[in-house]
Write a protein that binds this DNA or RNA. Structure first.
Lengths: 162, 162
DNA sequence: TGTAGTTACTTGATATGTCAACTATCCTAC
DNA sequence: GTAGGATAGTTGACATATCAAGTAACTACA
């Protein structure tokens, strides 16, 4: 038994990875700050969007966590804020005593609608204004391949002790 | 004076942006967990790498923050951990009484070298194993354009009140 | 039934991130 | 020299994230 030769990143991979980290560490905070002026986090925004796109503006918590890429406990903590403030309401599932459904309230829908244009504008400014259509497609295809794997493959999920 | 029409994301942009969020919220935690088994965060790793690539393994704190995409206060907090543990040492700059230099210690270098192969392997598994060389180049080019703007342009920087 | 295992969600302790306020040094110009 | 302003870094309060452990309800099967 011996060590495999490490699979170092080549030049191009390094360039991609470092740029990705710049987006995460510099780009995301810009979006966070703007949303924060409207009392939202990017995570909150993702939760509201997921609900708004769901039939009856309602979702089972576990599905919501999955759609918003959150661990269950992280979702619970965020929902405490969103329900306290009245953007989301929670209801026991009548079929399954364990489950709960989250529903976007009118207030939540209004908040989402008031922030969405601003947020879209910011994403455009930070990300897409710097790409031509071909590059955007390239980016979408590459990221989707990676994301597809992260969602389906048996990468241990958040919150599941290993 | 009237509201501009919101610049909504088109289909492709949405696909790209949602996939990016999947990478951030599902991919990064995988990397964090693996590094954490070796008492490191991705941020710590970035700091150690920046130092290791710098002459004399030494950097001015403000440059280090910039290279690692961190706010100064975040850097200070992370450095407390890294210096307490002996991976990094701090020295007053003799030229400029305000400034400090951070130096990677031998222990820090050893820690970095012991974790780097594993981390590279994980980045490959999470990101690049799903892309062919053309897609990787596309991704690198697109992300670099975005990142380039985030680093140079007058996007308000972290830690600077606006 | 009833009990072992699974699923759905919550909780709380601890770690990390963020923001504004603070100290200390340097620079400039008068 | 010295006042005003900039620069470098730190601090502390508060918000958020993570992880493991906990509760409660369902399921399967003896």
């Amino acid at each position: 038994m011996h060590m495999e030769e490490p699979r170092w990143l080549d030049e191009t991979q390094q360039q991609a990875w470092r740029a990705f980290l710049v987006m995460v560490n510099r780009g995301m905070p810009i979006l966070e700050r703007t949303l924060k002026e409207h009392d939202l986090l990017v995570v909150h925004y993702a939760i509201l969007v997921a609900l708004s796109e769901s039939p009856a503006h309602t979702m089972r918590l576990s599905d919501l966590a999955d759609t918003a890429n959150l661990s269950q406990s992280r979702l619970t903590h965020r929902l405490r804020v969103l329900t306290d403030r009245g953007d989301v309401s929670l209801h026991q599932d009548p079929q399954d005593g364990r489950g709960k459904n989250a529903t976007l309230t009118n207030a939540g829908r209004r908040r989402l609608e008031s922030v969405a244009p601003l947020h879209a504008e910011n994403v455009q400014r930070v990300v897409f204004d710097h790409l031509d259509p071909t590059e955007t497609e390239c980016l979408a295809r590459a990221l989707s391949k990676i994301a597809g794997n992260l969602c389906t493959h048996e990468h241990f999920r958040p919150d599941e002790p290993h």
